[in-house]
């Protein structure tokens, strides 16, 4: 059998044959350098304004959570009742009274800055737990099928029957000295089912695709098929669900704190929203700032998820 790497023959035949016609495409080849899915996605992302805006917001939030001291000199904890519900002073940018004071006379600006850490940790860590668990279980169930799928799917059904709020409430009850990590773990243990279902469905669709059959026909093993073919093609819906639920987890933490079962001895947006809601009639600003930060954070993550999903789909580039 003649070897393909005989360039001379290959070129000669290609020019003779009427088949040398692929070149009619009017598009000019782009400057083509590196070519992995992720590097291409990254190059594409850098050109998207939505990505840049959301990435800047998220980076800022990460910086705030890591080094709150950089952003304010004020202490969020001690209250000074002389400042009781003092209105914001927008001209004092970055000062303790910038966003005003709450009912206990604490600086809202300082509390928003110091509260970011808890919210971000809960959001990111819970999403990470949920995504890893959900993708793993969903992928195994969808790809291997059979009794593995039957067992894992029933397990998913059982877990999804537990209301997350109620479930995490019960779990957290058992812990004293609850931190952002405990809250994340409690929500994460219960929250993986949605991503599992999405992932399982996507994997089942993808594994029947001809390109997966083609890879099997080439002799590719399960590991390769999962990583190269199944995973990249089932990622899109998971990213969407994960980013949307990231916001949801931040709000869930807020709810738990509101119910008094969230992070203890700490500052979180959720706890402050809960406090602020008591003053909603006479001092809206107490509620507005933590709630506004929460909304912007959630929005930024959703926008990021959208942009990443689009960038990972070459058809949308």
């Amino acid at each position: 059998m003649p070897e393909l790497n005989d360039t001379a023959t290959a070129r000669a035949t290609a020019t003779v044959s009427p088949a040398g016609t692929g070149d009619v495409t009017p598009e000019k080849p782009k400057k083509e350098t590196s070519n992995s899915l992720w590097s291409n996605a990254w190059r594409d992302l850098r050109r998207r304004p939505v990505f840049i805006v959301s990435a800047v917001i998220i980076l800022l939030l990460l910086a705030i959570s890591a080094f709150p001291g950089w952003f304010t000199d004020a202490d969020p904890k001690p209250g000074d009742l002389t400042h009781f519900l003092q209105k914001p002073n927008f001209s004092h940018i970055g000062d303790a009274d910038w966003f005003g004071y709450d009912a206990q006379g604490r600086s809202i600006y300082a509390r928003v800055i110091y509260g970011a850490r808890a919210s971000i940790i809960v959001g990111v860590v819970t999403t990470a737990i949920v995504t890893v668990l959900g993708m793993l279980i969903g992928m195994i169930a969808g790809y291997f099928g059979g009794w593995v799928d039957a067992v894992l799917s029933r397990l998913t059904d059982i877990f999804s029957g537990v209301p997350i709020l109620l479930g995490s409430l019960v779990i957290l009850q058992a812990f004293t000295g609850r931190t952002a990590w405990t809250v994340s773990a409690a929500i994460g243990v219960l929250g993986w089912t949605q991503i599992t279902r999405v992932m399982r469905g996507a994997v089942i669709t993808v594994k029947q695709a001809d390109y997966v059959q083609a890879a099997r026909a080439l002799g590719a093993g399960s590991g390769r098929i999962l990583m190269k073919h199944v995973l990249p093609n089932s990622l899109a819906p998971v990213i969407v669900v994960a980013t949307i639920s990231l916001g949801m987890y931040i709000s869930l933490e807020a709810t738990l704190s509101y119910l008094g079962i969230g992070i203890q001895n700490g500052i979180s947006w959720g706890g402050d929203i809960s406090d602020g809601s008591e003053q909603i009639r006479n001092a809206l600003h107490v509620l507005l700032f933590p709630a506004g930060f929460l909304s912007v954070t959630v929005l930024a993550f959703i926008m990021l998820g959208d942009a990443v999903r689009d960038a990972l789909d070459p058809k949308l580039r």
Partner: peptide, 14 residues
């Protein structure tokens, strides 16, 4: 080796 029917689904889009 094999050549598939549908050229739109037999190549991994990513």
């Amino acid at each position: 080796q094999m050549v598939f029917q549908d050229p739109y689904t037999s190549l991994n889009p990513r």
